[in-house]
Design a protein around this nucleic acid. Structure first.
Lengths: 319, 319
DNA sequence: TTGTAAGCGTTATCAC
DNA sequence: GTGATAACGCTTACAA
């Protein structure tokens, strides 16, 4: 008991006793067992779980860094798990994290069915969603302004005079659908026809995006510009265009390194991913501190996006 | 007690009893407390700690994915921490991880002083180093073949006839020093003079690398080729070269996306980062399973690198 | 087949 | 100021 107090700098411990305890601890290499301590004190782990679909993707890596950085300021650790876009795996993971008594869990949900993410089913662990909104459950979330980002950048293509614009995106996910919606809104607003043969929304990887772009390019009435719903697709499209004469316009969601070094001006929808991680953590910590007591209305934070234009003021040909 | 057994599928529990228990658990949303269980059973957390310098860097993100994936197969979770290259922070982090009773810790050490990474000082937690070797402590590690990678790719520059080759790299870290050593070996072997004015080893970020390259280019007897010790420097060098006439040869350590799309052939030293994470985890788990009993001689695994050549068979000018 | 007692390493509480 | 006791939620060992 005295050891416990000494290590906690409890003032009721005699300075001399404290010294002796510290010396002994030092010498024995004693280190308080946080597992046992937390079992007694809070019943929770003092960690937050982070569940993403693919850690190797820079987006999730930056998100993770944002979460980790914010958590570190509160002395919390982050347990990172990868789903590989598998909803069943996601279910197992959050279940495990709940069993390990995470203080809270941040999830980038993989699918439509989110019932397993309901805090009520997780023994009351607070949950915050990132990048995609809750569907059928009532939790906080941080989103990007997917619609407006896509709308803005597509509008610029339109005002450059493009009348046939191809859309390339990954399957399903809510974000992709929102970006398609923004894309369509910009086209509709300009009074242009919506041609669904120019919409290819099934490319998860660069190679698939490149192939899809090539296909669109062979159309009789091929697009003169492309909007890509994520960086995988933008890069794939660029690869296809580069094999040709680079006479098309390219725009996309997600900023990426070297975008300004491409042989083609590119417009990209950029945003602060780490900020998204921080925001999500902030929402989560608010819930944790509230202790699930009076469950406030769920919050939805939407982060702004900006359009960056790369390569506009560079000569189009090689120097 | 019966609940404990039922949840564990203990065959001594009457099937009917088991059903009743499961039903009740389901209904109450009961979930076994892993913290308490582990306190009793193993005294450890069933998690491994991973300490890196910068999660947002694709190298560490892929490493983390490799670790996470391997751990997942063993039902272990990964606690990820970021040091931001701060050795003092690294010390605090491993200390915390030890207090939280990680089963083991994988570290990419930030500095020269590694005393705080000695398992003996961490209450016996197994430690494995990744990317950089142990200095003054006796632990397993997984390294890249930094020397040979650099040697090989530099040799190719030499055999192309380059006689003055610039070196660009980040400060300090062991890897960078090894790569410089490989670079020098290739030059010395060819009987070329070693000109230290062409060695710039202090650029951590792309902008600094770009500036350093520009400086080297203004030298009276400027290099005709560059070897860069990491991707930050390769990209910085490329930016500097692209502003000019792109008549220099470029080589570097680390593969990166879009390298094959640059307006300049590039030779890169590539390797499997996720494999490094897997290997590190494997070494760690071996130690964990050994239980610190008979401490076997420490192992050092060196992963091979390959040289990839991008843009060699593409027309040099724009189509 | 089920239940009881003890203990994992802490800390809150109350006595000394 | 310090120590004894109980309890956090679980499981091992043993009894019923």
């Amino acid at each position: 008991m005295t050891v416990s107090r000494a290590l906690r700098d409890d003032p009721t411990v005699l300075p001399e006793t404290r010294e002796r305890v510290l010396a002994a601890a030092q010498q024995l290499g004693y280190r308080r067992n946080e597992l046992a301590r937390r079992l007694r004190v809070s019943g929770t782990s003092g960690m937050v779980g982070l569940v993403v679909t693919n850690l190797a993707n820079p987006f999730y890596a930056q998100l993770a860094l944002g979460v980790e950085t914010f958590c570190a300021t509160r002395g919390m650790k982050v347990v990172v798990s990868n789903t590989g876009d598998d909803v069943e795996r996601e279910r197992e993971l959050v279940d495990d994290l709940a069993a390990r008594r995470m203080d809270g869990i941040i999830v980038v949900p993989a699918g439509q069915d989110q019932q397993h993410l309901d805090p009520a089913r997780l023994g009351g662990v607070p949950v915050v969603l990132a990048a995609r909104p809750p569907l059928g459950i009532d939790v906080d979330c941080v989103l990007l302004d997917d619609f407006n980002g896509a709308y803005e950048v597509t509008s610029r293509l339109v005002s450059d005079g493009h009348r046939r614009i191809g859309f390339l995106g990954p399957p399903a996910a809510w974000t992709s659908a929102e970006r398609l919606r923004g894309f369509r809104a910009a086209i509709a607003e300009a009074g242009l026809p919506l041609d669904d043969t120019l919409v290819r929304g099934d490319q998860r990887e660069v190679a698939a995006a490149e192939a899809a772009t090539r296909e669109l390019l062979t159309l009789e009435d091929a697009p003169t510009a492309f909007f890509c719903a994520n960086s995988r697709n933008t890069i794939g499209a660029y690869r296809a265009l580069r094999a040709g004469r680079l006479q098309h316009a390219l725009a996309g969601f997600d900023d990426f390194e070297l975008a300004d070094m491409l042989d083609l001006p590119v417009r990209l929808v950029a945003y602060d991913t780490a900020a998204m991680g921080r925001q999500a953590t902030e929402l989560l910590i608010n819930r944790i501190d509230a202790g699930g007591s009076e469950s406030a209305a769920s919050r939805r934070v939407v982060l702004a996006t900006t359009v960056v234009e790369y390569g506009r003021n560079r000569p189009r040909g090689r120097r």
